[in-house]
Design a protein around this nucleic acid. Sequence first.
DNA 1: GCCCTCCATGTAATCGATTACATCAGAGTA
DNA 2: TACTCTGATGTAATCGATTACATGGAGGGC
Lengths: 334, 334
Amino acid sequence: MARIKDVAAHAGVSVATVSRVLNDNPSVTEETRTRVYAAMRELSYVPNAVARSLRTEATKTLGLIIGDIANPFFAELARAVEDTARAAGYTVIIGNADERAEEQDHYVRTLLEQRVDGLLICPTAEVTPLVEEIARAGGPLVFLDRTLPGVHVPSVRADGTDAIRALVAHLRQLGHRRIAFISGPARLSTGRERTGAFLAAMAEHGLEVHPEYVQAGDFRSGSGRALTARLLDLPEPPQVIFAGDNLMTLGALDEIRARGLRIPGDVALASFDDVPWFPHVDPAITAISQPAAELGKRGVRVILDRLGGRPAESVSLPAVLVVRQSCGEGRDVS
Amino acid sequence: MARIKDVAAHAGVSVATVSRVLNDNPSVTEETRTRVYAAMRELSYVPNAVARSLRTEATKTLGLIIGDIANPFFAELARAVEDTARAAGYTVIIGNADERAEEQDHYVRTLLEQRVDGLLICPTAEVTPLVEEIARAGGPLVFLDRTLPGVHVPSVRADGTDAIRALVAHLRQLGHRRIAFISGPARLSTGRERTGAFLAAMAEHGLEVHPEYVQAGDFRSGSGRALTARLLDLPEPPQVIFAGDNLMTLGALDEIRARGLRIPGDVALASFDDVPWFPHVDPAITAISQPAAELGKRGVRVILDRLGGRPAESVSLPAVLVVRQSCGEGRDVS
DNA sequence: GCCCTCCATGTAATCGATTACATCAGAGTA
DNA sequence: TACTCTGATGTAATCGATTACATGGAGGGC
């Protein structure tokens, strides 16, 4: 593979000049420039980003660690991160943590070795020593979607408090009283916060929450189905099941269908987290939509701010309630 | 950030010894080794993969260019590629071509500059001069999911011929005769092949295909909806709509629902490409399932074979028909 | 006691770019 | 003509690792 030295020899100039052409340095004659370009073309020269990065100490690369690409929420997030980064001249390396701290740390290590300029993490579970150390050392880190308690790192996340309050209001207006919430693990900030917001909203609307109506799963469809089964087996089952993410909603849907129950007649269903196919099922699922693309975009902006020496501030974007038919037909002021 | 030189000084050895420890060279004393590890820990040393890659001329990185991460099929594919590559010690950089040749070429260029060891491409549309040149130069390329006519590169793809034949048999057995197929653009190998297989299967079963019943869209939901509308507006609308990918199926579902038609009573629906939520809609969608994860896995294996100097052979995996309820209730021998 | 072998470790060249500094030609000025 | 200044280009050090080859010391055979 042709090197800068070959191009220089072929064009009859020095490597410095070729490098200047590569970097659009204006102090190169138009004539020399065209000669160099011609040499590059003839040799099919492809600049070596590895060598450049070694010298410049910058890779123009961002690392993104997400919970699971196969989860549409993260897919949309990743897409936005990629698009935004690309527009700013950065390449993105995506790592799939599979919701496991160990995998997450593997990617953190790998990406640091690759010398990514910045790191966007959707932290799984607990604070790991590795992440904590990087945060303390002031590494170029930003948390996306989730935060970690006690770790001082800028974050970009969605705030579902208002949307959950709106959902509870909507449910109440439709006459529902016995509302259950199945959510993710308390070790995830998203799991904790959604549960907290739900309990607060219920209290605000003077609705009682049966202790058995709040269950923690793992944000996967299997646990959504299992918890739904448990709820439906209660002597007094809930009138509404509100699931903590799109996969748990899917599990709930399964269990409800398997029992031959009708939505929303026998039991209503709502989801925290909206995905493109929810409007297409019958009945269309009422959901709280997180601005996934916007989160990704803002995340990149925050990290680029940090890299550019500008102050990086945490961002919290509101999630919004999208009323469809799965909780009942009533119109809602929303 | 600590360099190998610092570690060496701190441990009282030479850089060569540190490098040997990093690379598990057995000729280092156990005692020296522990001293070096201690120094690394104390300095929070992180090896610089950029420098290593420059020297070794290998990045232990694979590039993957897909049509769209937000399409669940590609998400699953990407996930499998990542998992498999990771198990072999490789990192994956994913590029989103957004189904545009121009974007695809941008990523090809970027990934070549990054000196990825191998490149997995799901080619969009036409053969671009860039891709053609790399193929001719014998670059470490593998095509995934799709192939390009006239370009000699190993490929890993799914073959839907048998599954489409099985679907047509299934439809015929249920009494359907007027079957329409809305598919992707003919410029994509997947679009062409699926259409060809459909026509062949229809002929085999002695079913006539009304020319208006075969329409080409763009593998996106919008065109799925538009084409479905056109079909339903025909004086003699089809009894079955078979959509060429999961997004077009979604569009078709929309249009059918919007008209208040019932599936499969008023019109049956089938999809080429299965996604996790198809079993959860009512009625569950009959679909042809492509082994996306297996494609990804095999793709990585093929490219690693190439890199390892072993012969890289093209792979074609059968897609399978998954009968559900959207075409009618009849049991099928499949 | 001498020499050879072997093993652990060190020295220094190298990968391909960037860039501070040096150089040199030509124009402008007195 | 001689001098300076400017602008284009060249020379060589550098980034942080790997690795071929050099070195030196311990141990064994005679």
